[in-house]
Design a protein around this nucleic acid. Structure first.
Lengths: 350, 350
DNA sequence: GTTATTCGTGCAAACGTTTGTATTTTTGCA
DNA sequence: TGCAAAAATACAAACGTTTGCACGAATAAC
């Protein structure tokens, strides 16, 4: 037996005033006198009143829930962006409605449709690797609701875009490898139609060019962002291309390469330098620890949230791109070391 | 300039029928003839109609969004439970509204209040470590909306509870350590008022008892589930208690212990066996790899979702507890090995 | 003391659906 | 052709708010 929930009308009856007064009182409107405001507030909590946001949003024509679509929340980067968004948006009175696209364009479209149906006040989105058409995003802006893109973004649809400084991260990372003596540096990339991987590739190429190293297309491995792909790629590259380093756009494929190298020839492993991207939690834990580019996911989330707040209620949409700085974290995988030196240390101590 | 969104009424006018007919047509109600149903559907998509779920939910008195409160989505376990829930609930036409408590009771309460205000159709919750009073959960069931608890649960409030078989996991893990020769096994636990840690502690004690080992209270370290706590604890234990193994309720404190041991005395490190709990992704990547108890988070999510579907629309609430099986994954950290043996291998190969 | 102004509250419509009931149209059958 | 039954659609109220406007009372200005 479901109990009828207490409404504004119940409170109004209880106090002998009208619903409108109660509504204004609860909203803190100064048009209703302080004494009645206090009375209303007291009886509201006393009766166990929970405002019905559905009704409020319907009436107001806008909702305080913000929709967010990400490829997957179980990724370190995305979950921290979400936390960063929440940290700003929750205190400001907004809720987050989170959907995952699981890297499928169809899921992404469904998620957007669902968010639109739920009349969210704005949408935050980082698109799936599959997504190449953006009509569903245009639909969002056409409906007049603010859209903020982050990380994986497209300039095909107007609005704020918050991105990492991928170019700079890749540049620094590659320069670091070069300084440590590498010349034949392979690059593991994602699909190059995605801005993120494109920009990292550009940074990589630029670093080579600056160092007077000619870019060798046979050292570019596309769609190499998961562990297995990295392992497979490094095996072939070592066999055929005499590489001495790998700059990967993904920590996962870097990890795969690292493990494969260790397995193939423990003695060799330290002589091929490796650096990844994203600074996943495991990067500092593995052996050797993985050099990577740290993205400030939480900060990015904050920026996204602020862009949302700026956009909401505004009529014109601002087509801006904000870059969040990244930082190279140097670890063992990119410094010239030999497994044997570690062992001799062990032997000395034991 | 915000465009007015197209409603059911617009479609009705366009076709010269009433809104009610359009509503029924869109719902696939057979009371409206097939020809009109098709016509409605076509013009609806043609006009770019998006149903207004707010209005629908308000009228129907129930909503198809399910609220979910978790301590943090950036934890492997929770993000995979979420995925498991989504995998069942999304195809069934539900959305997930996810909130994080960040392990704060106050956040948890706020989240629940917000979900109630948004008139979610049901609530899924795993409570924060801080939470010891459960009136906010009682409020949920008093409002007549289904509540499903998972992982960290309380029996103080009725309803389905989906939990891991913590007792069994702890039992197996401790038995494994004992079989490998350990007798003085420390236990890193969380706060024991939480069912999860309580049950694991019971499993640990039971394993000791079965093996005829007396439980030594000085080997129980409470509130030891983060990396630093594990490091600190193991240092003291090694100094004062002559332990030969650690069974930790958390992979993180196990990791801390492992790293500390390696640092303190590389030669010693292999002689103190360590096992963790949760099988975090890093467990298999670190050196030595970490023995742990794998929880089937995705499966748990599925169970949660099914419990939700069973509960929705039902009047009586079923006070059931479902246990999801766990599995011990044996890795290097719990087998007797010496760093030196690895080195000699290296030397042979290089 | 009259007229403006402010203040506090009430009235009623609106937001976009759903749904029980009433009404019209169609169909079947004698 | 007539009439009941069935089918298709229309009507209208309801969900719980918000908010522009109206209204009366109290206060201020002249």
């Amino acid at each position: 037996m479901v109990k009828r929930r207490v409404t504004i009308i119940d409170i109004a009856k209880e106090l002998g005033v009208t619903p409108s007064t109660v509504s204004r009182a609860l909203a803190g409107n100064t048009r209703v006198s302080l004494p009645t405001r206090e009375k209303v507030l007291k009886t509201a909590t006393g009766m166990g009143y929970h405002p019905n946001m559905l009704a409020a949003s319907l009436r107001k024509g806008r909702s305080d829930t913000i929709g967010m679509v990400v490829p997957g929340i179980n990724r370190h980067f995305f979950s921290h962006v979400i936390s960063g968004v929440e940290a700003i948006l929750n205190p400001a009175g907004f809720n987050l409605l989170i959907s995952q696209s699981h890297e499928k364009e169809e899921h992404e479209r469904k998620a957007v449709r669902s968010l639109l149906s739920n009349r969210v006040g704005a949408i935050i989105l980082s698109h799936s690797v599959e997504t190449t058409a953006f009509d569903h995003l245009l639909e969002i802006v056409n409906e007049g609701i603010p859209l903020v893109q982050f990380d994986r973004v497209t300039t095909d649809v107007p609005g704020p875009r918050i991105v990492n400084d991928n170019f700079f991260g890749a540049l620094r990372s590659t320069q670091h490898l070069i300084r440590n003596g590498s010349r034949r540096i392979a690059h593991f990339s994602g699909a190059l139609h995605i801005n993120v991987y494109k920009e990292r590739f550009e940074g990589y190429k630029y670093a080579l060019q600056q160092a007077g190293i000619e870019f060798d297309p046979s050292l570019l491995i596309e769609n190499c962002i998961i562990q297995d792909a990295g392992a497979e790629a490094v095996e072939k590259l070592v066999a055929n291309n005499r590489i001495d380093a790998v700059f990967s756009s993904s920590d996962y494929s870097a990890l795969g390469a690292l493990k494969k190298l260790k397995k193939m020839n423990p003695g060799l492993s330290g002589q091929i330098l490796i650096s990844g991207f994203a600074n996943e939690p495991f990067a500092e834990l593995i052996d050797p620890s993985l050099t990577s580019v740290e993205q400030n996911a939480f900060e990015m989330g904050n920026q996204v949230a602020h862009a949302i707040i700026r956009s909401i209620g505004k009529d014109e949409i601002m087509d801006e791109e904000i870059q969040v700085p990244v930082r190279l974290i140097q670890r063992e995988s990119s410094i010239w070391y030999r497994a044997i030196s570690k062992c001799s240390n062990h032997l000395k101590k034991t």
